[in-house]
């Protein structure tokens, strides 16, 4: 009530100067700030500071122990002549190119499959999700076994079922990135669950009326399902881009960046510069370059999505 009162008085004061904004708009703007206030507080107190600090550090030379020394654009200039930046960036981009589309497509298809009314639905959903939960060292251990060239299950299946000699997977310069992407595919559970949840929100009448109009499976999927869940497709795409460009742990544990730098991902390099070379300044510069890359890609997705994503509730 108190809030409403103050809005009222302010409105009477302001209306004399600016006539355009309606009381409803103001009330809404006030409510907006109230609703996002937790994030604003968190940003000011905990997340914003370190981000600005890292931006500052990217213009310095800083070994954590002594105080940072200003080097201007030095780190950024050095970055362009750094052989490993190019190597690691191309490994990362290749990975993202494989992982992002496959994650989205497989995630969506699995979600649709698991949304069918079948016996043991709960079991299937849980089973498909299970590999996504296994973490860190364990998952690396499991996959280096499964994809072992000589006695791994995958290669022996390939041999027995199709008569193909499987590749060297993690130990081959050509296959190491596809192997990482394949490994990531069993961890598609997160994406799948998000799609699954979005499928639950679809209004049933639309399908029923479409069915009456004679729309069949594929047409329904393209013309009704995809537009309706497009906000979530956008979400999963952006998250997959961010996640792919920040991939690191798998390579750190399984291949140590090898063979011949082929799985030396960008963030792996960044981690090395920060924690094994103690060049926090340079690492920060690397981080901000990655930030810009991801930012541009995200903006691109958002730009494309303007034409394609359909929001039930659009406002700006």
């Amino acid at each position: 009530m108190h809030l409403d009162h103050s809005v009222e008085t302010q409105r009477t004061v302001r209306t004399k100067k600016k006539v355009k904004r309606s009381p409803k708009a103001k009330r809404q703007e006030r409510a907006f700030w109230l609703f996002i206030s937790p994030w604003v507080i968190g940003f000011i107190c905990f997340t914003g500071g370190p981000i600005i600090a890292s931006l500052f550090l990217s213009f310095t030379s800083y070994d954590i122990v002594s105080s940072p020394i200003w080097v201007g654009l030095g780190n950024y200039i050095h970055l362009f002549s750094d052989f490993l930046v190019l190597k690691s960036l191309s490994a990362t981009a290749f990975y993202a190119l494989l992982a992002v589309p496959f994650t989205i497509i497989l995630g969506l298809l699995l979600a649709i499959l698991l949304n069918q009314k079948v016996k043991g639905q709960a079991f299937f959903r849980t089973a498909f999700y299970a590999p996504s939960i296994i973490s860190g060292v364990s998952v690396a251990f499991l996959w280096s076994w499964l994809l072992n060239p000589d006695f791994g299950v995958v290669n022996s299946l390939l041999k027995q079922l199709f008569g193909i000699d499987g590749p060297n997977w993690f130990n081959s310069t050509n296959w190491v990135i596809p192997s990482m992407a394949l490994m990531q595919l069993t961890a598609v559970g997160g994406t799948m669950v998000i799609f699954l949840a979005s499928l639950q929100q679809l209004p049933k009448e639309l399908y029923e009326s479409a069915a009456l109009d004679g729309a069949k499976g594929w047409a329904k999927f393209i013309h009704i399902t995809v537009p309706l869940i497009s906000p979530v497709i956008l979400f999963n795409t952006i998250i997959a881009i961010i996640g792919s460009f920040q991939i690191f742990t798998q390579a750190y544990v399984i291949t140590q960046g090898g063979p011949d730098w082929h799985s030396y991902f960008y963030v792996y390099y960044l981690f090395d510069t920060a924690f094994s070379q103690y060049r926090m300044g340079y690492a920060s510069a690397l981080a901000w370059v990655l930030f810009i890359i991801i930012f541009v890609l995200t903006m691109l997705s958002l730009f494309v999505s303007r034409r394609l994503v359909y929001y039930e509730y659009e406002n700006k």
């Binding site: 280096s144 076994w145 072992n148 060239p149 000589d150 060297n168 993690f170 130990n171 081959s172 291949t255 090898g258 063979p259």
Partner: peptide, 10 residues
């Protein structure tokens, strides 16, 4: 080197 890392996985 690649065979080694393959058998070392064991």
């Amino acid at each position: 080197a690649s065979q080694l890392s393959a058998i070392s996985q064991l």
